[in-house]
Amino acid sequence: MAGPRPSVVEVRDLHVDFATDRGPVHAVRGIDLDLAVGQVHALVGESGSGKSVTGLTIMGLTRGPRTTVRGAIRYGGRDLVQADESWMRSLRGRELAMVFQDPMTSLNPMHPVGRQIAETLQVNAGRSRRVARADAVELLDRVGIREPAKAAARYPHEFSGGMRQRVVIAIALACEPAVLVADEPTTALDVTVQAQVLDLMVGLARASDTAVLLVTHDLGVVARYAEQVSVMRSGQILERGPAQAVLGDPQHDYTRALLAAIPRLHGPRRRRLSPVATPG
């Protein structure tokens, strides 16, 4: 592994609160995070830990009348928390990109897939429609879709989940963004397809030096792909560090409990799964 890479995104003391009818929800409670160029930083935790919110907030997609964001997200010399919406919009798609969890609904069912890829090229890279459409075909090829020229004219519902996620990856990485937030990108996919898609995504990202924030609950994924890992629970990061270190020698009880909860193929068959104690 190479030496420490420069940070692209620095998150400092980030707090995200949502105002709901039942009172404020503190989804993120003061976290620090660094994303390095060309590296995968996994953000691990259970459902409700705030990891998705973190990813969305970096993208600026949690902004709204009921959201309060405090702290700093430094990127490109600016603080994304303070940046205005039009600046964020110019970053999105071009320098910040995201892959969402459910491929079945991430694509507009009424547009052909080629057009959806071309759209991001037209908006962010200023390419003409013809050029963008041609590039879209090339991108489809790069994400491993057969007969990309014909596929570009097809609609999302004509593809399987895995293929749709490849299309989403193509959209996200089309403009070679500096940051890619992947929010559980393979959770909704079949197990045998998961690895293919992740290989593809991470491979493409590394090739273009894109920093990846990989939000996941799957420690196996962390082990395979991440250089850095942060373990999150109830809006706070409990443990952070290089993936091999954290997984091999967990310091925090919670991390240990997470690892212990993974069912083992070897060992007594009737052993009980040890639950991870959740705080009150």
């Binding site: 997609l61 919009r89 970053l91 071009r94 969402f100 459910d102 507009n108 069912p109 759209e119 908006v123």
Partner: peptide
């Protein structure tokens, strides 16, 4: 509220463009 609108927003489209195209 559909997810693909989120994708479109992620692409950096303006709200009006999203309204009309998506």
């Amino acid at each position: 509220a559909q997810q693909w609108v989120r994708t479109a927003r992620m692409k950096g489209l303006t709200e009006s463009a999203i309204s009309v195209k998506h």
